[in-house]
Design a protein around this nucleic acid. Structure first.
Length: 420
DNA sequence: TCTGGGGTCCTAGGACCC
DNA sequence: TCTGGGGTCCTAGGACCC
């Protein structure tokens, strides 16, 4: 079996390009919520030295000088295009693992490396034809090697035409000895520093290291990486959908908030979002956390706190969660701070008992269940937030946030530059 | 003026039990 | 004075990912 890792090129930027061909070959970036920092860049933008995650105010001169096209993120659009890409990929194998919004692993049923390469080239053609999204494919006997191959395909798009294979052992030896250890999937900053201090600098060197020694240094994860680099698969394909174990909803505010009432609105909105997601996957939550914080970037008094409550029997009812969340918020709120962010976490998620006749105790009453079903149905049919709790309010803080999220940024950006 | 959001897995250490 | 050993469960925090 050969594993393919498909990764969309500069995915969010490519989505913007798919609907605006005029952006082809221009530098494009997409910004985070609140238009805070850069979360996607095309090759042209990378070539200008725009780093991943850089705050946008630090590069505004660069943007103006090189006429970089700037977009707020539009996750509804990216989600749609992602689904179409995955749908197209599923035509190539029944064994597809959607790994993230822009990545998927495919177990290819092929006889040899050559067949795998030809199939991958067809994927590149078809996905682009159907969706307008360019992809790269990495091939290998394990997931980690497929990831490495994908990096190489991306780095040398011209020569590889988007497909690179590490199936052949000789190619592996050559390429791994040129591949920096810190670029391996699963090796982060801390682990890379540890490895380098032991003079392990390339993927090849890591693959030749003593497994026990690496396990001591980096825990069991490190040992798995060594095995995978040596073509011994220990990360299996995840083919079935697993419900999430936690659901987090949080946002930075457009402007700092001081009042408890405003924080309450924000929290109620986070609960609403998270509870919808919770019900969509058929789960109930076993605990609830609320947190608030000031901006760590400001030279002002800092405060961070969180509070957690166990929900023994589990619930997925929005108003119950809002009520509990308010109690938690009140217990940690302190006046006199500029709050910049808040959020909630639903944890210990478990599948809801199938029906009221269940032997197990169910916290939510049939009446509440019915109410939630109706609420979700209406919002699904008529659009998000058609029906919502009064506690969610109509606060301009919130208006502003959701507007920024969906609205194109180009106009606002040019206004910003002109008024400067 | 202006610095994202949402996840998973693993480990260490404390509480508790016999 | 001397103060076991082993097991489980839970949680906080670290590290990593996209």
């Amino acid at each position: 079996m050969i594993i393919a890792l498909v990764d969309c090129n500069s995915f969010y930027c490519s989505c913007e390009r798919a609907f605006n061909p005029g952006l082809q070959s221009l530098p494009v970036v997409v910004l985070s919520n609140n238009d805070g920092c850069v979360i996607a860049r095309t090759d042209e933008a990378k070539a200008l030295g725009i780093a991943m995650g850089v705050p946008v105010f630090k590069i505004k001169d660069l943007i103006k000088k090189h006429n970089v096209k700037v977009f707020s993120s539009n996750f509804a659009l990216y989600g749609d295009l992602s689904a179409r890409v995955m749908q197209t990929l599923s035509e190539f194998t029944p064994e597809l693992e959607v790994y993230s919004i822009d990545e998927a692993f495919l177990a290819l049923n092929v006889k040899n490396e050559q067949q795998a390469i030809e199939l991958s080239q067809e994927m590149v053609r078809r996905v682009y034809q159907y969706t307008g999204i360019p992809i790269c494919v990495g091939l290998g006997p394990t997931k980690v090697l497929a990831k490495v191959a994908n990096r190489i395909a991306k780095k040398h798009k011209k020569q590889t035409k988007g497909v690179f294979s590490l199936v052949h052992p000789e190619t592996r030896r050559l390429q791994l000895s040129r591949f920096p250890v810190e670029d391996i999937w699963g090796v982060g900053r801390k682990s890379a520093a540890k490895l380098q201090s032991h003079n392990i600098k390339t993927a090849w060197q890591l693959s030749q290291s003593n497994e026990k020694f690496i396990q001591k240094l980096l825990s069991i994860q490190g040992r798995r990486i060594v095995k995978e680099l040596n073509a011994q698969a220990c990360l299996s394909m995840d083919l079935i959908f697993e419900p999430q174990k936690n659901i987090l909803s949080s946002r930075s505010f457009g402007k700092p908030i001081q009042e408890l009432e405003d924080l309450k609105e924000a929290v109620a909105n986070h609960i609403t979002t998270a509870a919808e997601k919770l019900r969509r996957q058929g789960s109930v939550a076993g605990f609830l956390s609320v947190f608030i914080r000031t901006s760590p970037f400001k030279n002002a008094p800092q405060y961070f706190n969180s509070a957690t409550l166990s929900l023994e029997t589990g619930t997925c009812v929005t108003h119950k969660l809002i009520h509990k969340a308010f109690l938690l918020l009140e217990s940690i709120y302190k006046p006199g701070f500029d709050y910049k962010k808040c959020g909630i976490l639903l944890g210990d998620l478990r599948q809801k008992a199938p029906n009221q006749m269940s032997f197990f105790e169910q916290a939510d009453s049939p009446k509440d269940e019915k109410l939630m079903q109706t609420l979700d149905l209406i919002n699904k049919h008529y659009g998000k937030n058609t029906l919502k709790y009064a506690a969610c309010g109509n606060n301009p803080f919130w208006r502003m946030l959701s507007q920024m999220k969906t609205k194109g940024f180009t106009t606002r950006w040019s206004e910003l530059i002109e008024t400067k």
